[in-house]
């Protein structure tokens, strides 16, 4: 197997483009990525979408581990890395090699932020993902903690989930308070990551359509010179992703 380029180092050698979004729960990143997806498809691009912790094999295990509350910071981190490796190999690399656009909802930076807050070593988790490729564009949707909380509370989800709120860390017996403490630490960690890896910071407090306009402008610039692969007879792909409630991982 060939040695891949480091996550920090050289760009990947494939003809496709990898665009990723990062941000805490309630930042609106998934909505933005979905709108970008619609737009790219409407322009005739071939697009493949993948999201964090979604491979069947690992998802079932994570679910089991969460149910029995037996996950430790290290097994939690390793399970997500396994999921990522499997998706990179099976979902991300093939379309990139075929010259497609790949959109990823969360990338390794999620692990760098969240797993470190959970207590694993900063160096270790970076080494863990050394096989990852560097995205062509990485957006970070930055949002103040209170905005994220009010969005999540009045939104469709209603309440926070156990791990999403960091309840396993015993920060506070109150779920909302625990979420606030846990996600605030994650925000602080993201701020460091933005500098370290040069993520594009987006203001996630703006109107949805304003944010989307900014995103599309940036993507359009980045895609200048990119030759989209025509599908058979130039046929447009179906809008196969429905606009539904963003799932939390």
């Amino acid at each position: 197997m060939t040695e891949l380029h480091g996550a920090k180092g050289a760009p990947h050698p494939y003809p496709g483009k990898l665009i990723i979004v990062e941000g805490i729960d309630g930042s609106g990143k998934s909505t933005q990525l979905l709108l970008l997806h619609k737009w790219l498809e409407s322009k005739g691009y071939k697009v493949f979408f993948t999201e964090w912790n979604s491979s069947d094999l690992v998802k079932d295990t994570t679910k089991r581990g969460k149910k029995t509350k037996s996950l430790t910071p290290t097994t939690f981190s390793l399970l997500h890395a396994t999921d990522f490796a499997s998706r990179l190999y099976h979902q991300i690399l093939p379309p990139l090699k075929a010259g497609m656009l790949v959109l990823a909802d969360r990338y390794m930076y999620t692990a760098f932020a969240r797993d470190v807050v959970r207590g694993v070593s900063r160096d270790w988790v970076r080494k863990l993902y050394h096989f990852a490729i560097k995205p062509d564009m990485a957006f970070y949707y930055r949002v103040p903690i209170e905005v994220a909380i009010s969005r999540l509370l009045r939104g469709t989800r209603g309440q926070f989930k156990y791990y999403e709120a960091g309840m396993d860390m015993n920060l506070s017996p109150d779920v909302t308070e625990s979420f606030r403490l846990f996600q605030s630490q994650i925000l602080a960690e993201y701020d460091k990551i933005v500098e370290e890896f040069g993520l594009l910071t987006m203001d996630a407090t703006l109107d949805i359509e304003t944010q989307q306009e900014q995103m599309r402008t940036l993507v359009q610039d980045a895609l200048r010179g990119y030759k989209p692969k025509r599908g058979t007879y130039g046929r447009r792909t179906l809008f196969w992703r429905r606009f539904d409630i963003p799932r939390s991982e």
Partner: peptide
């Protein structure tokens, strides 16, 4: 069909679980 990263990471997760528990 597993790539070597996933395979090794599955072993690592198993090992970490046994190490800590």
């Amino acid at each position: 069909i597993l790539d070597h990263w996933s395979l090794s990471l599955l072993y690592a997760t198993d090992f970490a679980d046994r190490l800590e528990h």
